[in-house]
């Protein structure tokens, strides 16, 4: 089946097609989920090479359980975010104490107009601040405010109640405000923005 024709299928349906040997579904799922998992891993780890490793491992696990996937029981993305977060946590545990000075890696390949520079600087500041949060707070804030997921789905991913998610994101945001709001002026943000 052509890749475009796969757009009308949700992740569950594509995974079922994948399990039945449809190569188009394999390509469509990879194109749909790969960048998403990678982006999330990158935000949690702030390391491109490690994010690639985690993405590859998370998707390998998905392919391996595809034949046993029970459609309708859990969202594929919820499962993937959870696996990704667990893999990232493992990486961070190994890294802890040996790589505390890691500098967030922000790509620098777009035209350097002022606004783009400022956007990039803000993104860099945010990533640096995120990396200072405890892991669970960081994960909750990223899922809520960057990935744009709702609290119930985040609760499913993090294996928490929605109240606990709300508490984590609130504390994370408060910590981020303490870290970032003092930099507003130098990042081109003024009170009217």
């Amino acid at each position: 089946m052509p890749l475009d024709a796969m757009n009308e299928y949700d992740d569950d349906a594509l995974l079922a097609l994948y399990a039945r040997g449809d190569a188009g579904a394999a390509r469509a799922l990879t194109a749909r989920l790969g960048p998403r998992v990678f982006s999330h891993a990158q935000r949690l780890l702030s390391d491109r090479a490690e994010a690639e490793d985690v993405t590859q491992e998370a998707l390998l696990r998905l392919w391996r359980i595809a034949a046993d996937w029970r459609t309708g029981e859990a969202k594929v993305t919820t499962w993937l975010y959870r696996v990704t977060a667990n893999l990232c946590t493992d990486r961070l545990r190994k890294r802890r104490g040996t790589d505390l000075d890691a500098v967030p890696e922000i790509r620098d390949e777009r035209p350097s107009v002022e606004e783009t520079m400022q956007q990039r600087a803000r993104a860099g500041a945010l990533q640096a601040a995120l990396m200072q949060l405890p892991e669970r707070q960081r994960q909750a804030v990223v899922l809520r405010h960057i990935e744009g997921l709702g609290n119930p789905e985040i609760a499913g991913i993090m294996d928490l109640g929605t109240r606990a998610v709300e508490s984590l994101t609130a504390r994370g945001k408060k910590a981020l405000e303490a870290l970032l709001l003092g930099q507003r002026e130098e990042l081109g943000l003024h009170d009217d923005t």
Binding site: F38, R122, L176, E177
Partner: peptide, 23 residues
């Protein structure tokens, strides 16, 4: 923090073509 989150969303890292081929 809206301006920061907005910048963070736009600055999302993209995987390389080679990496996508591997996946």
């Amino acid at each position: 923090l809206a301006a920061f989150f907005d910048a963070g969303r736009q600055a999302g890292e993209s995987p390389t073509g080679d990496f996508m081929m591997r996946l």
